[in-house]
């Protein structure tokens, strides 16, 4: 089995790789959510062509493999003058990929905001900006947080795909180590257990966050948050 001296030798590289994984994941989630939210808002505008373009964007992203999107960005990009470093391409790729899914999650959340809550704000003379910030987004957060957490767990898993375009994240460092030490199977098994744990941690933290965000709904019958089974995946 895995030799301890190997861990000492490769420890720093693995740790660095883990740092890159977390960076890519965090930045990718952030870009995905911001972009997804913007797309959702733009879709509310009564401009038909804009809606079609956004719809097409979402369908294309959701209808093609993440790996193909990464190759297009990283290898295809330079043909149109878009030269990105592997890590940058990885983060951007994760963000774009996530944005399509987040846009759909947010759209469902937006539609689920009870109309009366918005009307109450309108009748008090609140501006759309205030209503969005103070009424719609908090209400959306409640109904979408299980789906958001699920998507974040999915993106955790997708970070390993970045190793294919040579982003020096954990998976990439691990493969380097495996190749140099010939302890391939053991290393991969270790990785599997590690990611299993990581995804579990992300999901647990997510559930805790969900409980926190929806705390004020206790004893509310109709609007209780329903944690959907996390069978969705990308």
């Amino acid at each position: 089995m895995l030799d301890l001296s190997l861990l000492v030798q490769y420890g720093p590289a693995l740790l660095r790789g883990f740092g890159v994984t977390i960076l890519c994941w965090g930045a990718g989630c952030l870009i995905g959510m911001v972009l997804g939210f913007a797309l959702m808002l733009l879709r509310q505008l009564p401009v038909k062509p804009l809606r079609w373009v956004i719809r097409a964007y979402i369908e294309v992203i959701r209808g093609t493999p993440f790996l193909i999107q990464l190759f297009l960005l990283y290898s295809g990009g330079p043909s149109i003058g878009l030269r990105l470093e592997a890590t940058t391409a990885g983060i951007l790729g994760l963000g774009i990929y996530g944005s399509a899914y987040f846009a759909e999650i947010f759209r469902a959340g937006y539609q689920a905001v009870p109309k009366g809550q918005v009307e109450a704000a309108l009748s008090l003379g609140m501006s759309y900006g205030s209503i969005l910030r103070r009424v719609i987004v908090p209400a959306m957060l409640v109904s979408t947080i299980p789906a958001i957490v699920n998507m974040m767990a999915i993106l955790t898993k997708e970070t390993v795909v970045l190793s294919i375009i040579t982003v020096p994240e954990l998976m990439y460092e691990m493969q380097t180590m495996a190749a140099e030490t010939f302890a391939t199977f053991e290393t991969i098994l270790g990785m599997a257990l590690f990611y299993w744990l990581l995804v579990e941690v992300v999901s647990r933290l997510g559930r805790r966050l969900e409980a926190r965000v929806t705390r004020f709904l206790t004893h509310a019958s109709p609007q209780g948050s329903s944690s959907e089974t996390a069978t969705a995946r990308a």
Partner: peptide
């Protein structure tokens, strides 16, 4: 200047 009270109260739950 015009207040409205709704059937379903429409308080903001958060």
């Amino acid at each position: 200047n015009v207040g409205m009270v709704f059937q379903q109260f429409n308080l903001w739950p958060h």
